[in-house]
Amino acid sequence: MANTFAFVESRGGDLRRVGLESVTAARHLADATGGGDVHALVVGAPGIASKTEMIAAHGADVVEVVEHPGLALYSPEVVAATAADRIGAGSYRAAFFSASAQGRDLAPRVAAKLGVALGADVTAFEASGDAIIVRHPVNTGKVIATLSITGTPVLLSLRPGAVTAARAPRTARVEAIAPAMDPASARVVPKELLAGNTAKLDLGEAPVIVSGGRGLRAPENFKLVEDLASAFGNAAVGATRAVTDDGWRPHTDQIGQTGRLVSPDLYVACGISGAIQHLAGMRTSKTIVAINKDREAPIFKIADYGVVGDVLEVLPVLTDAVRKAKHSH
């Protein structure tokens, strides 16, 4: 029997879905190793304690809550010191973080503070004897590594979506904890959170991604991509590196080897030829649709459904059809 630990990521006073995925993962590992307790840590400004019920509902037996007015924004040094303190105070087989922007900053700091190994960006995990065995995509997802990690605790950051957050309600004990250091004494000071368009779905979380490339011919034609995304209603808009390099779209929209790695249920590639650097970012999508005028474009080799044609002509018709299909439900 082994206890496990989960860091529950939040932003702006709300839990992030990846935070609950950590709790579910910690629950899975605790149950698989004889049913230990799950201790979850959540950090934020006063008010974050209202989220403890949600955390308990996903399988936490103990919820440790750190509330401080100086922690409205993610403060790397304070959160790392606090998480290292809490993990060090218990006896855990493993501690779960999210392989999100925040988690990939936090987990290595905590691992170094504790002097323990970190399995980063893992897509699967299991306990095996003294080790935790994980799977981790390397070489831009073209190779999958299986790693054996020893020591206690083993820190793991979980790739978003690798585990589906699931309800497993517990009656959790809630403990109020003080931050391990005064936020005012942090050297790295978070100054502001530049919220993107909050109505816009994030590429990592959207079930559908409509993505555009050079085949759109001009930045204003991205309107057609946005129209199709809005017809789906649950879609985010992505772009190729060629397009973000030219300033048609922000760098944050780039899907590919050096941009975002995504695996939505549906990926619609519009005017994208399928450079290897782009395929690296989206090849694990469940269903891929490609629209391109060049029948020989590499994107068609990995697309489940290809339409050969001018994206500027096909998109308006597809947008209409998707809108009608959505309305007929």
């Binding site: 190994a117 073209k142 190779v143 590594a145």
Partner: peptide, 26 residues
């Protein structure tokens, strides 16, 4: 404390199906 025990290639995607040409394929 991290050891590679295996490297493998992910399953190949089996794409390549062309539905049709132009707006008529929608």
């Amino acid at each position: 404390r991290v050891k590679v025990t295996k490297m493998e290639l992910p399953p190949e995607r089996t794409g390549g199906r062309i539905v049709g040409e132009g707006p008529a394929a929608v």
